[in-house]
Amino acid sequence: MISKESIIASLNNVGPNTLYELSKRLILLIPASFDYVAPRTLDEGVKFLEKQGDDAKVLAGGHSLIPLLRFRLASPKYLVDINRIVGLEYIRESDGYLHIGSLTRYADVEASQLIQSKYQVLSDAAGHIADPLVRNMGTVGGNICHSDPANDLPATMLALGASMVALGSSGERVIPAEQFFVDTFQTALKLTELLKEIRVPVPSAHTGSAYMKLERRVGDFPIVGVAAQVKLNAQGICENVGLGLTAAGPKALKPKGAEASLRGKKPGEKEIREAANLAAQDAQPVSDLRGPAEYKREMIRVLTVRALQRALERARGGT
């Protein structure tokens, strides 16, 4: 059996986000045999992972995992289908946080009035993942746990300053997004843990956010993407900025220099451009079919400008 590590290693050999690069060498579109379990509760799921974690893969929406299985880039002994676990699909605000159940589908995030009104970056991003059919199945938790640098939600969570709530046999632990994304296809989640929910701090007044994605074609993985959230004070000074970059390196990136450059400033054209330049400097894109690295870096700059502009419009009360 191919271990998770060996998959990662083999993928890393040919560069990040290159299931597709590798798959061209392997033409097998039927998964190898595996055993399937569908726990009904989180505890049951965690117990199974505790026992078989090394040999198991967690199946959520399946739209990254099932292609991996079909290409036989993953051949786990057990597939743990968490879709039967009740109570993992929710979107609600309480205790100063937006709580998103890990099994919440993209389509539900996209359609959520609450998210559209206060967490626009999230509805922007969720509404542009793959296509509507994929969005009916794909889950927020799956998108994040796959830690594909070309997935849209990791960068979004970085911009929002979200945290992930992991559940293991010894209980819950909260992992900030910055620590959660470790590398390509690698997160801080242990093999014996399940992601329970994502927590996003409720934004205060005068906060706006936006996600900008550049695609070769709708439904394709992004050439690059930029997530931005901006909080202004009553004087229009930037109090806080969160940025996240998609497809800009081995994992979703948080360009801290760019964020810092805007803090305490009244963001005008010049300030935005400067922040965008800094974000582009932090990017580590690689050349591939979606474009040369130089282009991608420049697009990080262009999209950072556009994402910040849109976020600021929204912070100032526009849509």
Binding site: Y20, S23, K24, R25, I27, R216, R217, V218, D220
Partner: peptide, 27 residues
């Protein structure tokens, strides 16, 4: 958007519908 490229080792770089794009209704 459509193009099948090869690298110098003869690896095909457009070998499925993820890499080889055909237009959708949107564009």
């Amino acid at each position: 958007m459509e193009e099948i490229k090869y690298d110098s080792d003869g690896n095909q770089l457009g070998g499925n519908f993820m890499d080889y794009l055909i237009p959708t209704a949107v564009e």
